[in-house]
């Protein structure tokens, strides 16, 4: 009996050791093609988060069956400086909830349109391979719910958005978000992860309610926004809402651009991106100062914090940063690092 027990333990240890060794940082390397990956177990409800938070990493788990529940709403929110705007949202936030899955997962997506909505809404996820990215299957009138399912067969960081016509209006009002499909084994571990999504906003005064702003189609067609914002609100990443990290920590930013129109030149003042997953895909570039995030696209950037201070996140088309709101901050705390950066001014005698 005892011998058997020891043998069992030994076998388990060896098995675990082998599994441990398999934990790798290579992405998408598997003998099984994503289409053939088996997602087993009972369906679970996926954890969703509001920006700038992201759900926990998928780690080294096997593909799963997941349920993603989204609700579309038409609600008043503050766009800037106490000014109300009629936002259209996924899950009550702009951007919509961050969805985090892994390649091979099978997702059932339930889309409910709040009964108080006036218009129908739907969803197109760029992570989906299939007609309309799901849009045709999910067109929901107010009060109704629709559903479709898909298998994630490509890893990467993808935009999702409402595709109900007129699409620029639905996107212009905030109906976009990000879905991350982690590769097999998960993304390499970092210390901090944040979700940032840029959008351009075109506004005019509402004829109906004093002080309320709403979408201005003429400005959208001319591509002349009034606001270019991170996470749907001016100052969403400033002051008390700065994102944070410590010296020595690695930071990963999931940066999306809902548009509808403008391409972003994403830059963190005082930082250089060690890794840039170009366009949210699988090719990694290094030592990048400013990276392009196309409208309807995304990027993953990573860097290590070496020096304490406030680092300003901008769209480097700088009029947007300083005049239209495309500005946020990362606060890095910790020990000074004079070897890397020394701001002492020389005094003259």
């Amino acid at each position: 009996m005892r011998v058997k027990y020891l043998v069992l333990c030994a076998s388990l240890s060896i098995a675990l050791a082998i599994t441990g060794c398999k934990t790798n940082t290579e992405q998408g390397k598997s003998s099984v093609s994503p289409v053939d990956m088996v997602a087993s177990g009972e369906p679970e409800v996926a954890e969703l988060t509001g920006a700038p938070k992201v759900p926990a990493p998928v780690g080294n788990r096997q593909p799963k069956k997941l349920i993603v529940n989204l609700v579309t709403t038409e609600t008043e929110g503050i766009i800037a400086d106490s000014i109300p705007y009629t936002f259209w949202t996924f899950n009550h936030t702009v951007p919509g909830s961050f969805i985090r899955i892994r390649v091979g997962d099978e997702v059932t997506l339930n889309l409910k349109n709040e009964a108080s909505s006036v218009l129908p809404h739907n969803i197109d996820l760029h992570a989906v391979t299939g007609p309309g990215g799901g849009a045709a299957a999910t067109s929901s009138v107010p009060g109704k719910e629709t559903s479709f399912s898909f298998k994630a067969i490509n890893p990467g960081l993808y935009v999702y958005h409402c595709a109900a016509p007129p699409v620029p209006m639905h996107i212009g009002n905030g109906m976009y978000g990000l879905i991350l499909v982690e590769p097999e084994g998960g993304l390499p571990k970092v210390d901090r992860e944040y979700y940032i999504m840029q959008g351009d906003f075109y506004t005019k005064a509402s004829n109906i309610k004093k002080g309320l702003l709403e979408f201005d189609n003429d400005k959208a067609v001319a591509e002349k926004p009034d606001y270019v914002l991170f996470n749907g609100k001016k100052g969403s990443l400033l002051g008390a809402n700065m994102i944070e990290a410590k010296v020595g920590e690695t930071v990963r930013l999931f940066v999306g651009n809902g548009g509808p129109n403008l391409t972003s030149s994403f830059h963190v003042i005082g930082e250089i991106f060690d890794n840039v997953y170009l366009e949210g895909g699988s090719t990694i570039s290094h030592n990048i100062q400013t990276t392009v995030v196309p409208a309807g696209g995304a990027v993953i950037v990573e860097f290590k914090c070496e020096v304490p201070g406030e680092y300003v996140l901008v769209d480097h088309a700088l009029s947007r940063a300083f005049n239209k709101g495309a500005i946020g901050k990362l606060k890095v705390t910790g020990e000074a690092n004079p070897k890397v950066f020394n701001a002492k001014t020389l005094s003259k005698h």
């Binding site: 218009l119 107010p142 009060g143 016509p165």
Partner: peptide, 19 residues
């Protein structure tokens, strides 16, 4: 576009609060 988007999302047995 909005009207047609609504129509194509309807089924004959649907009841909607603003329809």
């Amino acid at each position: 576009f909005m009207r047609f988007a609504l129509r194509t999302s309807l089924k004959a047995d649907f009841t909607v609060a603003n329809l």
